[in-house]
Design a protein around this nucleic acid. Structure first.
Length: 421
RNA sequence: GUGGGUGUAGCUCAGUUGGUAAGAGUGCCGGGUUGUGGCCCCGGAAGCCGGGGGUUCAAGUCCCCUCACUCACCCCA
């Protein structure tokens, strides 16, 4: 019978790999705590309407990448393609803003997008998401980016680039949209078919089209930064100023638009050369209109998402560095010794000592090999002789030395030795 | 959705112009000391050569189809 495999684009994270995941998540929790954030956990399934309104009807994500199905009854549900909409939904649903409009939140979990899988891109992937809600001060933008860079450094990533841009606000963006449309009017024949469509739906997206022909055209297109209003310009200048205070290096990428409609003003990406075509390991921006769009009060927000698979593939550490070896391996020979070993093994575990044993009754040599494979610091050798004489041999696997212990108070003896390690 | 590449042992891969080549390394199991790991030596188990069809006296090798994986476009984390 044929075995059943995982769904295309959905990956198992195997036991040898989970050490890295735990490490990264712990680092994030530690650093985010220092910046005053709290963790929130939200469902992975939401009403489809949430994403249609939040992300935007004409985005690629909503148009063709969502896992959507009709629930029993007539409601349409969607496996979340991103987390921001859900976090805002929870923020509004529980009236968190009523007690305090300022909320600094993060969440960690899987997202789902039905794209063709490739390097660094999966249909189920994981993100760390941060949302700072309730403040539009440029210091918050800089602080958020600073925290992101600080976190990435803490997990020893290097050779990263930070790109920032300002997307303007609903007040100034229409004039730029107008300018783009005028600029592109007589160049329609040279645009790719996707960009032709974008002229109607979302002309700003033409700016970051990667097709060769479009690239040439847009190289001397109007720059968004030349059209933003004085408030947006002032905001952007201050973000840059604060980033310089913290010595966070950045580059301005006037063509970065980003694929989610809700972004306003500050937008940014952290990129690397090492990931192939999928070069963004984190991205985010300000979304001052989103909360109102989702039916809430006029409250600003800013956030980012980190792609965990991408981040973890860049970690300089090896999987083995996260392996946790046992303190003690018990090699027991014969029924009596096995019985003694079994109770001792579990009693030690209950005292917090990582203990392993062999249940197969194999030769001592084989059990020693197993102990060595686990990289156990000590091996306790228990044979017929030892049981009769009420003693045991404790071998230090690192030093290659051995001592005889009495079986009286053996738990306490071993416990003391391990605690001295 | 559209292209390119790759499918041989658990893993990484050799397999010549089609002709007893089903192979290596690693991992796993056992032995080399009646009860002592690592290094070394010896032995063993393990593969419908992705699946289906075709050409041929003969197919892992050539052709067609299909599936899976992978990279790229697009898009994004």
């Amino acid at each position: 019978m044929k075995i059943i495999t995982a769904v295309r684009g959905f990956k198992d994270i195997l036991p040898g790999e989970t050490g890295k995941w735990q490490y990264v998540e712990e680092k994030a929790r530690e650093i985010f705590k220092n910046f005053g954030l709290s963790e929130i956990k939200v469902p992975i399934l939401e009403k489809t309407e949430l994403f249609r309104r939040g992300i935007g009807e004409t985005t690629d994500i909503v148009e063709k990448e969502m896992y959507t199905f009709q629930d029993i009854g007539d409601e349409y549900l969607t496996l979340r393609p991103e987390a921001t909409a859900s976090v805002i939904r929870a923020y509004l649903q529980h009236n968190i803003h009523a007690a305090d409009p300022v909320a600094k939140l993060f969440t960690i979990g899987p997202m789902f997008r039905r794209e063709r899988p490739q390097k660094g891109r999966f249909r189920q992937f994981h993100q760390i998401n941060v949302e700072l809600i309730g403040l539009d001060d440029p210091r918050i933008d800089a602080e958020l980016i600073l925290m992101l860079i600080c976190f990435l450094k803490s997990v020893r990533l290097s050779d990263l680039g930070l790109e920032i841009n300002s997307l303007g606000c609903p007040g100034c963006r229409p004039s730029f949209r107008e300018a783009i449309l005028i600029f592109l009017q007589d160049k329609k024949n040279d645009l790719c078919k996707d960009c032709l469509r974008r002229l109607d739906t979302n002309p700003l997206r033409v700016l970051d089209c990667k097709m060769e022909g479009c690239g040439e055209i847009i190289s001397d297109a109007p720059k968004l930064l030349d059209y933003i209003c004085s408030e947006c310009r002032d905001h952007f200048e201050k973000v840059k100023e604060y980033l310089r205070i913290f010595d966070v290096p950045f580059e301005i990428n006037a063509k970065m638009v980003r694929g989610l409609d809700y972004y306003t003003r500050t937008a940014f990406e952290v990129t690397t050369e090492l990931l192939g075509a999928q070069n963004a390991i984190a991205g985010g921006g300000r979304y001052d209109r989103l909360i109102e769009e989702l039916g809430g009060p006029d409250i600003p927000g800013i956030g980012f998402a980190i792609g965990l698979e991408r981040l973890i593939s860049l970690l300089p550490m090896k999987d083995e560095e996260f392996a946790i070896p046992p303190h003690l391996f018990i090699a027991a020979l014969g029924d009596e010794a096995q019985k003694f070993a079994y109770t001792l093994c579990n009693r030690l575990r209950m005292q917090g000592i990582r203990t392993e044993m062999d249940y197969s009754g194999k030769s001592l040599k084989s059990q020693m090999r197993r102990s060595n494979k686990f990289n156990s610091r000590y091996t306790l050798i228990l044979g017929k002789r030892e049981i009769e004489e009420k003693k045991a041999e404790l071998r230090d696997m690192k030093e290659g030395t051995q001592e005889t212990l009495s079986l009286d108070n053996i738990e306490e003896t071993i416990s003391n030795i391990v605690k001295r390690m």
